[in-house]
C-alpha cells in the first residue's frame, strides 16, 4: 500500500502549495494536482467507478475555476492585513478540532478491515437479486435508489441556482 501513502503525501503537499502560493492560477493548478492524485489513489483502492468520475469532474472543475480566476485582471494574491488575535483564534480552533477528531479516529475500525454488516448482504445477493454484475451500480440504482433520487434533486437545484444567479433576462439595468 505504499503507493497510497505516497499519493496521500502528494495530496498534502499539493494542497499546502495551493493554500500558500501567491498567484491564483498556480493555486488552481496545484488543486488539480490534488484531484488527480486522488483519482489515482481511487484506482489503487479498487474503486474504478469513482476514479472515472473523479478524473472527468476534476478537469471540469479546473475549467470552471480558471474561468473564475480569469475575471480578475491581475491574478496575484490579495495582501493579508494583520488582524489582532485572528490567527491565534484560528490556531486554537484548529487545535481543538484536531484533538477531538484524533480521539474519534482511535474508535474507527482498523484500516483494511471494515465493518461490512449491510454490504455482506449486497455482495452475496446483489447479482441474483438485481442481475447487475457491477455491484456499485446495483447499490446505486436498486438497493439505494432513493439516495440517487435525492442526489438528482440536489444536482437539479444547484444547476438551476447557478443559471438563475447569472441570468441576464429580466434584470434591471443599473
Amino acid at each position: 500500500m505504499w503507493q497510497v501513502y505516497a499519493l496521500a503525501i502528494l495530496m498534502i503537499v499539493g494542497s499546502l502549495v495551493a493554500v500558500h502560493t501567491r498567484y491564483l492560477l498556480s493555486a488552481v493548478i496545484s488543486l488539480a494536482v490534488v484531484g488527480l492524485a486522488l483519482c489515482v489513489a481511487f484506482l489503487y483502492l479498487q474503486a474504478p467507478d469513482c476514479a472515472i468520475t473523479q478524473i472527468v469532474v476534476e478537469v471540469l472543475a479546473l475549467i470552471i475555476l480558471i474561468r473564475a480566476t480569469g475575471v480578475e485582471r491581475d491574478m496575484s494574491e490579495i495582501k493579508n492585513r494583520k488582524e489582532i488575535f485572528a490567527y491565534e483564534a484560528i490556531g486554537i480552533f484548529i487545535i481543538a478540532f484536531a484533538f477531538f477528531a484524533f480521539r474519534a479516529l482511535s474508535y474507527l475500525p482498523e484500516f483494511g478491515h471494515p465493518v461490512m454488516k449491510v454490504s455482506q448482504e449486497y455482495i452475496r445477493k446483489g447479482l441474483e437479486q438485481t442481475g447487475a454484475a457491477n455491484l456499485v451500480t446495483s447499490v446505486l440504482l436498486d438497493f439505494r435508489a432513493y439516495d440517487t433520487l435525492g442526489e438528482a434533486t440536489v444536482l437539479f437545484t444547484a444547476i438551476l441556482g447557478a443559471i438563475v444567479v447569472l441570468r441576464e433576462v429580466g434584470r434591471k439595468k443599473k
Binding site: D49, A51, I52, V56, G131, A132, N134, S138
Partner: peptide
C-alpha cells in the same frame, strides 16, 4: 451494469 462506470461517469 457490467463494467465500471454508469450514468454519472458517462453523462459527465
Amino acid at each position: 451494469h457490467l463494467t465500471p462506470g454508469g450514468g454519472f461517469a458517462g453523462g459527465v
